[in-house]
């Protein structure tokens, strides 16, 4: 087991007139070679800031980042070495590609920067990379604006893979794409991982996408990880009330669900987060202890870790609800029951 990424108590605080904004507040994660760690959370939870720290375009305030054997202490100094171990795929496929360059030059650029191969060798490698992501010679001569969103995202992926990094950070990499194209790109990610054994730090607000693609899922709330574990453990056990709320809020095209309790209000400001457990202001289980004591990630069995004082209680309650609901969904509730639920 080799780790391609390990962060240790990483924090990023931005200075604001009203005090430090804790974008990332003490995060320790590990990603193994060939593994996908999904990172979910709502806007402002710090998932993008974390991604930017990992690839080196933001500087952590404290904490360390290990990329394989490369330990990064200062944010910007290791740009050149770091590039061989980690690359990034962005959300907006049009903004991530220089509009003046052809696809061929865009994919070749990292090879050139690192002086890999002679001109002819680079050309062959570009063709190989393009084929790997499903682009043809026709596309190589085009400019980004002549391609569709999905094709542009393929160019970004080919460019990111050019240096054969062990880790690819995908920041909302499929969020801007239409559903049918999103499926193509997700399939591509899966295929590439099988073939190249590349690991993904897959960041998305869409829990069903993260569940599909990830081996493990980490749920973030206000700069902290509240739950992390194998994808199906996180999804099925929902030990943290926030994870549960996130899953419940997904509009499901298979079942109409009007009966679920929704979270009230919005995410509090990260400048002035609540004391103790930051989720307590929206949590249906919140008690006195939550305001006083910050919950730490605790093992819950089967590699699941949850940061909640009452995880035991919630898991027990969930089990009851789940049995009832799964029975309902499968037998397709009779019409009179469904009408009553509305």
């Amino acid at each position: 087991m080799t780790l391609v990424l390990e962060t240790n108590d990483l924090t990023v605080h931005h200075k604001t007139p009203r005090g430090p904004l804790r974008a990332v507040d003490g995060i320790s994660i590990q990603v193994e070679a060939g593994e996908t760690l999904g990172l979910v959370g709502e806007s402002g939870c710090g998932k993008s800031t974390l991604a930017r720290c990992v690839v080196g375009i933001s500087k952590p305030t404290s904490g360390t980042i290990m990329l394989g054997d490369l330990e990064i202490k200062d944010g910007s100094r290791h740009r050149f070495q770091r590039a061989r171990s980690v690359q990034m795929v962005f959300q907006d496929p049009s903004g991530a590609l220089n509009p003046r360059l052809t696809v061929e030059r865009l994919i070749e650029e990292p090879l050139k920067v690192h002086g890999l191969g002679k001109k002819a060798e680079r050309k062959a490698r570009v063709a190989e990379l393009a084929a790997q992501v499903g682009l043809s010679d026709y596309h190589l001569a085009r400019h980004p604006h002549e391609l569709s969103g999905g094709q542009r995202q393929r160019v970004s992926i080919a460019r990111a893979l050019a240096l054969e990094p062990g880790l690819l950070v995908c920041d909302e990499a499929v969020s801007a794409l239409d559903v049918s194209v999103q499926a193509q790109v997700l399939n591509l990610f899966v295929d590439l991982q099988k073939r190249l054994n590349v690991a993904y730090l897959f960041i998305s607000h869409d829990l069903s996408v993260v569940r599909y693609i990830s081996h493990r899922i980490a749920v973030m709330y206000l700069g902290r990880i509240v739950e992390v574990g194998p994808a199906e453990e996180v999804w099925n056990r929902r030990n943290h009330p926030y994870t549960r709320a996130l899953i419940d809020a997904i509009p499901d095209e298979a079942v109409r669900r009007d009966d679920i309790a929704l979270l009230d209000g919005d995410v509090p400001s990260p400048v002035n987060p609540p004391s103790g457990c930051t989720f307590r202001t929206r949590c249906p289980y919140a008690r006195e202890r939550c305001a006083a004591e910050v919950p730490v990630l605790r093992d819950r069995g089967n590699r699941l870790q949850v940061a909640c004082h009452f995880a035991d209680e919630i898991e027990a309650a969930n089990t009851v609800v789940e049995t009832v609901r799964s029975g309902q969904a499968r037998s397709d509730v009779p019409a009179h029951l469904r009408a009553a639920a509305h």
Partner: peptide, 15 residues
């Protein structure tokens, strides 16, 4: 639409 988890045997997405 992504269904299930591929680690738990979900099939390739039908694009």
């Amino acid at each position: 639409r992504p269904h299930g988890s591929r680690t738990a045997g979900a099939e390739r997405l039908a694009d």
